[in-house]
């Protein structure tokens, strides 16, 4: 549906979020976001992943017009961030949910509904969606962390937004709550709605996201579907006889490693060279029964990506 070829033909405004060289320097010595370039397509669920302090929240705040970029630009829903036109079509949850502690959950949503021209009739369905209806009349300060998080989610859903921006939405939830939140996000991401969510857990994004962007030190260091990212620069193969195979492999230029792992030989080589390597082995009299790219676990992908650079 969202094939790359198709996308290239489509107009620019089909990117729901687009940033160019987005930069934020809080103080001369704190460069929180550094030349970030990112594009989010209509209808996709986009994971924004990076270690603590990578600049995720700062980026999201810039997309909401809460924080002014020091340089670069961004458009959200084709509008300037923070304008009523953009905000009216997006629902957000940034960092820990912030609400008025002395108001009930429902009254908190009433305040937000008034500020967004949303009818009160949408409040209870939103509370129902996050299973908070029973406690809706209780004061926010009496809520557990998970309940606060769910109220934040209800607030984000209030406007029935085209774009949802969620900053670590599973923060503070128990395992059941996390699973439930993932299910909710996945169901929200179906159809036309675009969802952007940040996380520092790659694995968490696995069942949810169509694409992810990996951010480190304020820059986007990788972007693509999870499958794209998982296919690292490693190949694994089954070959007989193994000793002869290693001998041959070590002589091929640009190939390194050839370590036996779980009955496979794993080599550092681009998956694009698979056919060539296969031919060389066969010509050298080695029988190759399997040859393909190594699928890394998402956590490994993440660690490889974020750990390598200084």
């Amino acid at each position: 549906m969202n094939g790359d070829i198709n996308d290239m033909k489509q107009p620019m405004d089909n990117f729901i979020v687009e940033t160019k060289n987005l930069t934020k320097r809080y103080r001369p010595d704190i460069l929180a976001v550094n030349g970030l370039a990112m594009r989010i397509r209509r209808g996709e669920v986009y994971g924004f992943v990076g270690p603590n302090g990578a600049g995720k929240t700062t980026t999201l705040r810039m997309l909401l017009g809460l924080v002014r970029p020091s340089a670069g630009e961004c458009t959200v829903l084709g509008e300037k961030p923070g304008t009523p036109a953009a905000l009216a079509r997006m629902g957000t949850l940034v960092e820990t949910p912030a609400f008025y502690p002395y108001l009930s959950g429902r009254d908190n949503l009433r305040v937000l509904a008034r500020l967004s021209d949303t009818p009160y009739s949408r409040i209870d369905p939103a509370l129902e969606e996050v299973e908070l209806l029973k406690r809706a009349g209780h004061k926010f300060k009496s809520y557990s962390l998970g309940m606060k998080q769910r109220l934040g989610m209800a607030a984000a859903l209030l406007k029935d937004p085209e774009l949802l921006i969620l900053d670590e939405p599973t923060n503070g939830l128990d395992p059941a709550g996390m699973a439930e939140m993932r299910r909710l996000i996945r169901s929200l991401g179906r159809g036309e709605r675009t969802v952007m969510l940040s996380s520092h857990l790659m694995g968490e994004l696995e069942q949810i996201c169509d694409r992810v962007g990996v951010v480190k030190n304020g820059s986007l260091i990788a972007e693509g579907s999870l499958d794209d990212l998982r296919h690292g620069a490693q190949l694994r193969l089954k070959a007989e006889p193994e000793a002869r195979a290693r001998e041959v492999l070590e002589k091929i230029e640009g190939v390194a490693g050839a370590e036996p792992v779980n009955g496979y030989l794993v080599i550092d080589a681009s998956p694009a060279r698979a056919a060539e390597i296969n031919r060389i082995l066969v010509e050298a009299g080695v029988a190759v029964s399997e040859l393909g790219p190594v699928k890394l676990s998402l956590e490994n992908v993440f660690l490889n990506l974020t750990g390598e650079e200084a």
């Binding site: 809460l66 905000l87 912030a98 609400f99 406007k159």
Partner: peptide
């Protein structure tokens, strides 16, 4: 002042109403 201590300007400024309107 409580808007700052509770961080509630974040939701208030991301609904639709402009900052000055709020």
């Amino acid at each position: 002042g409580s808007e700052y201590t509770w961080g509630t300007l974040t939701p208030a400024f991301t609904q639709k109403a402009s900052r000055l309107k709020v």
